[in-house]
Nucleic acid binder design. Sequence first.
DNA 1: TTGTATGCGTTATCAA
DNA 2: TTGATAACGCATACAA
Lengths: 339, 339
Amino acid sequence: MTVTIKDVAKLAKVSPSTVSRVIADNPRISHKTKERVKIVMDELGYHPNFNARSLINKSVQAIGLVLPNSTEKVFQNPFFPEVIRGISKVAHDKEYAILISTGETEDQIYNEVVRMVQGGRVDGLILLYSRVNDKVTNFLIDRKFPFTMVGKPHVNTDAITHVDNDNYNAGKSVTDFLLKLGHRQIGFVGGSLSLLVTVDRLRGYEDALAAADVPFNKEYIVHEEFLREGGQEAVKELMSLKKRPSALVVADDLMALGMFNTLAEMKIKVPDHLSIISFNNLLLSEISRPPLTTVDVNIYQLGFQAAKCLIEKIMNPQEPAKRIIVPFTIIERNSCTTK
Amino acid sequence: MTVTIKDVAKLAKVSPSTVSRVIADNPRISHKTKERVKIVMDELGYHPNFNARSLINKSVQAIGLVLPNSTEKVFQNPFFPEVIRGISKVAHDKEYAILISTGETEDQIYNEVVRMVQGGRVDGLILLYSRVNDKVTNFLIDRKFPFTMVGKPHVNTDAITHVDNDNYNAGKSVTDFLLKLGHRQIGFVGGSLSLLVTVDRLRGYEDALAAADVPFNKEYIVHEEFLREGGQEAVKELMSLKKRPSALVVADDLMALGMFNTLAEMKIKVPDHLSIISFNNLLLSEISRPPLTTVDVNIYQLGFQAAKCLIEKIMNPQEPAKRIIVPFTIIERNSCTTK
DNA sequence: TTGTATGCGTTATCAA
DNA sequence: TTGATAACGCATACAA
C-alpha cells in the first residue's frame, strides 16, 4: 500500500540500509548514490513512517499539552489559546507536533497522561496549571519524564522547570493599588485554593493588607472557577454581605466580565460603587464597559518559554531545572476609582 | 527500560502472544490466565506501546486539525478555540487524540499535512477552512485519506464530507436585514476571496441587493484578514470613499471590533452614522460597545459535527460523504439602526 | 562506500 | 486454550 524504504531500495538498486542512510544524510554514502536514491524517493512519493522510526528512536517529535480541565471548559477562557500561541510558535520552529489533552475530570486526565507517556506518544509535556498534590506531576517526576509547567510547582519547586509570574508580588501590587485609591474593604476573588496561582496571589493580598493595617476579613475571600459564571457567583456572594466591599481583586478578566452583568442587575456601578482590578489583560478587558484595569501577565511569553525549556530538556536530559519569572504590568483602565 | 509485553509474559509464565491476547480481551483465553496476566501487568505497570501497535494496525487513534494559517495568528480569533471545543468533545468521547498543525505559510502547512498523513501520525484530518484550489484538499482526495471540512469544498463538493452554514442565505439575510432598515449604501467586508465562506456570503449579498433593486457598487467590497487589524484597514478604506456606506456587512466579529477603534478616531458613531452587522457571535460581540448585531453560526456545532463525521469515516471507510448544514440565527443587538 | 542481519514492541497466522 | 514464528517499517552493528 504505502511506499516503504524497501520499495525505494529495490527501484534504486541498493539495499534498504542504504536508503535509510540517505534519509539520515549519513556522510558515508557517496554523493552519487544519494542523488539516485533521492530521485527514486521523489518518484515514488516516499515518506518515512513515523511510528516505525519512533519505535527505534524512542522519540516522536511531539509534545503534549495538559490542560487543567476539559478542553470544552478551558477553551471558553481566552487565556489558553493565548498560551498555546506561544507554545505553538516554538513547536513549529523546532518541528515538534502538538498534542492536546481532552480529559474531563482529573482522573481522566491523569490516565490520559499515563497513556501518552507510557505509550510513547509524546517526548515531553507542558502542564498548563499548577495544583496542590497533583497526581500528574508526581507521576512525571517519578517516571523522570521531561516536562515543564506554566505556574509554580507545589513541591520540588527547584527540581521542576517552570515558567511563572511573581504572583505573590502581583497580588500585593494589585492590593496596594486599591489601597492607594483609599479602599479598605477589599474583596478577593480567586480560583480554587488547590491552584497555586490563587495561593500566591492571596498571600500577596493578605500581606499588603497587613502592611497597611487593614484588618483581614475572611468573608471577603471567595473562590470560583475561571469562567463568567464564576464571577457571577462570587459577586452575588460578596454583595449580599452586610458590609459590602468597595473594591475587588479578581483572578481573571473573564470572571470580572461575568460580574458586570450581575452587578448591572443589582444596580451596582463599576467603578463608582465598586472598583475591580483583575488579571490577564485579555482582549475582552479592553473592550468591556468599563474597560478593565487589569494585570498583563504576558500569557504568550508564559507559553513560549515553557515550550522552549521543554524542548531543551528533551534534547538534553542533563539540562538543569530552571525557573523563569515573566514580568507583569498593571494596565490602568477604568474599572477602578478612589473610595 | 520500559516494561514490554515480554516482561509481562516472562513473569506470568506465558508467551508474549498470550499477553497480547489478554490485552485485546480475546475470548479464547481462559479466564484464569487472563486474571493472572492482568495482575502481572498491574504489578509491572505495563502500558502498551502505541507506536509498535500502530505499526501493525495502521491506526494511531489520533486526528489532526489543519488550520488556515499559523496557530499564532489564528488563535487570536476566538472562532478557532470554539470549533476545537466542539471537536475535542467528540475526540475525547471516542478516545482519539488531537494533533494541531503549526505551519505558518500555505506551503509549510501543506508539507506538514503530507508528513502527518504519509508518516502515519493521524488517522484522519479536519480542515478548518475551505479554500479555492487548495493543495491540501487535493492531496487528501488523491490519497483517499479520511478527512472532513468545516466549510464548503471548492470542488468535489458532493464527495467530501463537510459541515457548513448556509452562507449564501446568511449573506442574503443579513443584507436584507440592513435593507429593511432602510439602508441603500451597504458595504461588504469579507475575508480573502479564495475563502469559500467569503464567496458564498458575497453572492448572497449581491443577490439581496439585486432583488431590492439597489445598484451594486464595487467600491463597497473590501477583503481583509479575520483580525482586528483587518477591520481597521477595511473601514479606513470604506470611510475614505466620497460616498460613504451607511451600513456594513462584516465577515467576523473581531473585524467589526477592530473597526470600532478606528471609527471612534474618525468621530463616526455606531450605529448612528454607520450600522454594522457581523458574523460569529463571539463572546466579545456581546460585550463590545455597542453590543454587536451578529449572526450566530453555531461554531461549536460546526466542530462537533465535523469531528463526528470524521470518526465515522475512519471507522467505516465506506461511509458515504455527507453535507451537514448548521443553522444560523441573527442576534439583534445595538450596532444597527434605521437609515 | 555499501550490504546483511538483527531488533524495536506489538499483532496475526499457523500449529499444537 | 496456548505457543512459536513472522511481519509491520525502519535503523544500526557488524561485515564486506
